[in-house]
């Protein structure tokens, strides 16, 4: 009995779909636009995230040590920094390495190199490059460095300079921009999705408006509400599924075409590779979104006409 009814509802849903070909086409196209928006949102958030990630990685804090700081002391500090949960990684540059870097940077500057040779000893101290997980955490790390006792010997601090305080304004500003970009992006995404869902919903409602007399006839013949609603929900799911397939196919040439320009413009994220690499995710989001949107819209739209 249950199986017989399920089979009949499916068959009736398929028939609705292909016998009202033109209405189906219109509904599928509008839903394609919606799913396109949802897919676009995924791309947008991926690009945004990877761009922000790239920018964040360029921010770090450098700790310059006095020349009298011993390597063990510096390495011990680096170890305790790594233990902090906010710290992503710590790069150690020894005094010798710092000197090499300096020479390399000024290899065309004879005067500076000459001056360097005049000095009796390597004038450069060791350096720690610290990278935090979040830009907002640099302040805490800087405070930690200032307060740590291991940094002093004979009552004199071993740290020459922490450039966080020079960069503070820039880092604060960046943190702020990243936060706003996230909030704004998220808000826009929600708005876009809501708008397109409303448009899809209305299109399906219009498609069913055409069938309202049919629904009246079905009721008079003695069809139960489930029996009337079932085929329309199946049709709605078919709309969603067709629109999802269309969207997934359209994304292929589109991302391929956009891949080069986005890769140069933004942080090296290749949209085409991203699409292919995350195809499973896209399939679930877009096909799932389409099916849910189609089914729910139909369900509600028929409900509207069942209470005549």
């Amino acid at each position: 009995m249950l199986w017989m009814n399920a089979k009949r509802l499916m068959r009736a849903g398929f028939m609705n779909f292909y016998r009202n070909g033109f209405v189906s086409l219109a509904a599928v196209l509008v839903m394609t636009v919606t799913l396109f928006c949802i897919g676009g949102v995924v791309f947008l958030s991926a690009t945004l995230t990877s761009t922000l990630e790239a920018v964040k990685n360029k921010v770090d804090v450098n700790v310059y040590f006095q020349t009298r700081a011993v390597e063990e002391e510096v390495l011990a500090l680096a170890e305790s920094l790594r233990a902090l949960p906010e710290v992503k990684d710590v790069e150690y540059i020894s005094r010798e390495q710092a000197l090499l870097n300096f020479k390399k940077r000024h290899e065309n500057d004879e005067l500076t190199l000459q001056a360097l040779k005049e000095l009796p000893d390597n004038p450069l101290g060791a350096i720690l490059n610290i990278r935090a997980l979040e830009p907002s955490q640099y302040e805490g790390i800087a405070e930690f460095l200032k307060g740590d006792n291991a940094l002093a010997r004979d009552q004199k601090p071993l740290i020459d300079e922490i450039n966080y305080y020079d960069n503070k304004a820039a880092i604060d500003r960046l943190t702020h921009i990243i936060d706003s970009a996230k909030t704004l992006g998220f808000g826009l995404i929600i708005l876009l999705v809501i708008l397109s869902v409303i448009i899809s919903f209305n299109t399906i409602r219009l498609a069913l408006y055409i069938a309202r007399e049919e629904i009246g006839v079905m009721r008079l013949v003695g069809a139960s509400n489930t029996y009337i609603r079932g085929p329309f929900v199946v049709t709605g799911i078919l709309y969603g599924l067709s629109a999802a397939l269309l969207t997934l196919i359209l994304f292929y040439p589109l991302t391929f075409y956009l891949a080069d320009s986005t890769e140069n413009f933004l942080s090296g994220l290749n949209l085409f590779e991203y699409y292919l690499g995350n195809f499973g995710l896209f399939f679930v989001i877009i096909a799932g979104g389409g099916i849910i949107l189609g089914a729910v819209s139909s369900f509600w739209a028929v409900r509207r006409y069942l209470h005549i």
């Binding site: 017989m4 049919e214 008079l220 003695g222 029996y227």
Partner: peptide, 23 residues
């Protein structure tokens, strides 16, 4: 008030389907 997207046969069959009659 026939269902326009169903044939004569299907229109009549529909009334039987909703009443839960077998194929």
């Amino acid at each position: 008030r026939l269902l326009p997207n169903k044939t004569a046969y299907e229109n009549i069959a529909f009334a039987m389907e909703v009443a839960g009659r077998t194929d």
